[in-house]
């Protein structure tokens, strides 16, 4: 089951990389920001993301306006940084798809479930803890989030 999920995720990641910018924009137009997130004021978003890097909060505010996956994705280094078990280990500024969430970035399984919970709570992505089993790399995560945005 675990391998199957990884295969599905990897396949989604490859699909996503082939989309290109136009496809991303088309996708974003089809999948607007959740009503609940859009209804939040900038102050409420800042409160929900207290402790996150300023660049991450700024991207969240942009995403609220644009609904673009690019803005959503720009938040991710900050979201990962927040959820690392130790602040001392900073993730790289640019995330490459082949980076492993645990081994390369230090995001253990508990941190991953916490991150999933936050994404569900703040952005209404309807993520259940078992959904993130098999999300092992940045590419997996990107594909996973895309899938969640599509099916929300």
């Amino acid at each position: 089951m675990h391998n199957e999920r990884v295969l599905i995720s990897t396949s989604c990641a490859i699909d996503f990389l082939n989309y290109g910018q136009r496809a991303v924009r088309a996708f974003n137009q089809a999948m607007p920001v959740s009503t609940e997130f859009a209804a939040k004021s900038p102050a409420q978003i800042e409160e929900a993301l207290v402790g996150f890097e300023p660049s991450c909060v700024a991207a969240a505010l942009r995403y609220r306006e644009s609904g673009e996956f690019e803005d959503f994705w720009t938040m991710l280094p900050g979201i990962i940084a927040f959820h690392l078990p130790r602040s001392a280990a900073r993730p790289p500024a640019v995330l490459e798809d082949e980076m492993r969430l645990n081994e390369d970035l230090g995001l253990d399984s508990l941190a991953l479930t916490e991150m999933a919970f936050l994404l569900d709570e703040v952005f209404q992505l309807s993520i259940e803890t078992r959904d993130v089993v098999g999300v092992a790399t940045v590419g997996d995560l990107k594909a996973f989030l895309k899938r969640k945005l599509e099916t929300r």
């Binding site: 929900a48 207290v50 402790g51 690392l84 078990p85 130790r86 602040s87 916490e114």
Partner: peptide, 21 residues
């Protein structure tokens, strides 16, 4: 209720990521 909003006197070197859970 959100531990990310917690704070402490600056003489203590506390990693917010360690304190949060």
């Amino acid at each position: 209720s959100n531990p990310a909003a917690w704070s402490w006197p600056e003489e203590f070197q506390i990693d917010a990521s360690v304190a949060r859970p």
